[in-house]
Design a protein around this nucleic acid. Structure first.
Lengths: 226, 226
DNA sequence: CTTGACACAGAACAGGCGTTCGAGTATCAT
DNA sequence: ATGATACTCGAACGCCTGTTCTGTGTCAAG
């Protein structure tokens, strides 16, 4: 009798299949499946086997279970549920330092502690793609961008910008990272602070200007004084 | 035998209570309650009565039900689902106008268009209660609070504040609404702008100062230039 | 070869849970 | 009065569902 064997390591095919089924079932029915439903759709004839896998998935931290409670399971962590977007917080942004740029690895594994959740309904435009990342502002150096110490800036990585977009740029001539509205003009670039009372930075075409990303959203949690 | 009667229209006290319980239970347990659990916590001794109310709530569109399925109910529309919080946007806030204050009615019925969704994981402290509201900033008058035109401020209604909290105040002497950090001092109040380069407003005790709410979060959607 | 872990099946148990039914009470318009 | 409507209760029915127990086949280590 044939038997697909998967000793030892990581997620087996069946684990993945169960995980996927829970996710798709949840999306479709708005509630988790029962053990028997999982069995049917994953070609597992016995409820005890499903329970067997569910236990493992729980131990591995992929799901949580409320024992004794019907359909009391849910996906945890990295799996995006519902209308949320999980954006990794890659580090801090401050005037004197280049900002961290995201690598593909960053989007693979990041813990819930290092990420922020955004409701997709809040996301402007069609930035709902997953290639977003976040940085926490350190210091008061971004006040001319109306951004405070501790604020969270959500960025979309890009090398070029259209006029009027707020971008994160690295000015190698000045050794400075800054957030400004970007305008390309005849003789160079104009970087306009968000604060209307402040004057823009004018750059000649010869000066280096590296666009690192485009600002999509700024979030300020005012909990530092509770 | 006394009997609270609620003929005809709208949500009765029990409807509301059930709705609230479902929401709080869901937040705590990550899954909906059973009919019997609702009964226990809402002082309803018979499952059929709970079912009776659930049917009505479904007809009124406040919940959805998957019949025959354990805990197969969920809140719809205005009620926050899962880890989201739906905050009503009651209006705009600008320097020359008093801010709209929330009434109970505002928390009952508001359309998804007039509200913003916040992931509870983003919410600071224990402001996860439902009595939050949001205002959209109009004009540049709040730049000294590091808040831009179009930003969304999320407030918790309150009349008094602790030192260091950012509050929305109405200065009737000056006919002005402003957002500042609040400090009570010996001879009066100090209202400190968030922008550290700006000077505070000093108020004598005699001057009127109406605290309208406490700032919990600021959200800036940078989509005006897409 | 024996042993033990691992993967799986099937059946049975027990409690959870939605549903339904019968019956009772209070308010109100007719 | 009378019936209609709204609301409540208690109990029973029966499926749903998680849990547990027994047994079987595979495979690698000793």
């Amino acid at each position: 009798m044939m038997m697909m064997v998967r000793k030892s390591k990581g997620l087996g095919e069946r684990h993945q299949r169960i995980l996927d089924f829970i996710a798709s079932y949840q999306r479709e029915h708005k509630h988790p499946p029962s053990i028997r439903e999982i069995g049917e759709h994953c070609d597992i004839s016995s409820t005890s086997v499903v329970n067997y896998y569910l236990d493992q998935l729980e131990k591995n931290g992929h799901i949580e279970r409320d024992r004794k409670i019907s359909r009391g399971m849910r996906l945890t962590g990295n799996t995006p549920l519902g209308d949320m977007l999980r954006v990794p917080v890659l580090g801090v942004i401050q005037a004197g330092e280049p900002i961290p740029v995201p690598s593909n690895a960053d989007f693979q594994s990041f813990t819930p502690e290092d990420s922020v959740e955004i409701a997709t309904s809040l996301m402007p435009g069609r930035e709902k793609g997953k290639e977003l990342f976040a940085l926490q502002v350190q210091g008061d150096s971004m006040i001319d961008a109306m951004i405070n110490d501790g604020d969270i800036v959500i960025l979309k990585p890009t090398q070029d910008a259209r006029n009027g977009e707020m971008v994160a740029v690295w000015l190698s001539d000045r050794n400075e990272t800054t957030l400004k509205y970007y305008y390309k003009e005849k003789d160079g670039y104009r970087l306009q602070p968000a604060n209307p009372t402040m004057k823009p930075i004018m750059l000649k075409k010869t000066e280096a200007l590296e666009i690192k990303g485009k600002v999509v959203m700024v979030i300020r949690k005012v909990d530092r004084y509770n």
